[in-house]
Amino acid sequence: MAVADTTTRALLSPTIGVERSIRWARIRKRLVIGVPAAIVVLLFAACFVGPYVLPLPAPIGGDVLNSSRPPGTPGHPLGTDVNGNDVLSRLLHGGQASLIVAVAVNAIGLIVGGLIGALSAYLGGKADTIIMRALDVLIAFPSLVLTIAIAQVLGPSLPNTILALSAFSIPGVARVARSSTLRVTSMPFVQAAALGGSPWWRTLLFHIAPNVLPQLLNFAMLGMGIVIVTEGALSFLGLGIPAPAPSWGNMIYEGQQSLSATPLLVLWPSLALLLAVLSFNLLGENVRDEMSGR
């Protein structure tokens, strides 16, 4: 129905228009992945290179006498916060923390979750059932509640934030890894490898893993936004990156204290968060559509 529709329309309209629309579709396909990818690269560059290239003051230890300056103050492009720290500098350093946490959590989730899921699917039987039931328990937990509890046990710090957030990224990845391993395991080349005398760990690592990885990487890409948001929530509650070190979450929290007087202090880290999450989400979704051939 839909195919017939487009064909008729294509036949009725002038050829040039069709060619142009095909070319536009091709360009569009590249743009929807290229633009968010470029923004992600820019974000990383700004946060990890920016503070060392730009002439910015340190993100902490500001002068209280110099507090709450408006944007555009000489030396402080985005002004200063209530403690007299440079907002732009805090924004970039805070971004470092957010991005480090997001990358580390997803890397841990990918490796640990991927191994658990693949192993579970490959072993099958009792082991599979036990592992999946254990994951069910973790998945049933509201993730923010679980992370709050773990973060409180471990105490606020950057490595502990990573560990706490990993607890909820692992089960999801393990689920995806398990289902795609099951799919790959039934394929002829895996049986061929087993018949060829390849031990189980070798089959898993060299034959199954490379075929499961693209899907997992994409899942992790979609997970980046979620981790950044949850890290922000933890820091906002004072359980993530400990103040005075900046993170987007605790900057929003500090800004909230003087919301009516200086709403801009909440706006900047919120916008940074929005930009990061949006570009990671767009990238993940469009790569997924591309991979599934839509």
């Binding site: 929530a233 919301l259 919120s270 999450v277």
Partner: peptide, 9 residues
């Protein structure tokens, strides 16, 4: 892409 705590504020 807007976290609920940002939306709330």
């Amino acid at each position: 892409a807007v976290p609920n705590y940002v939306l709330a504020l």
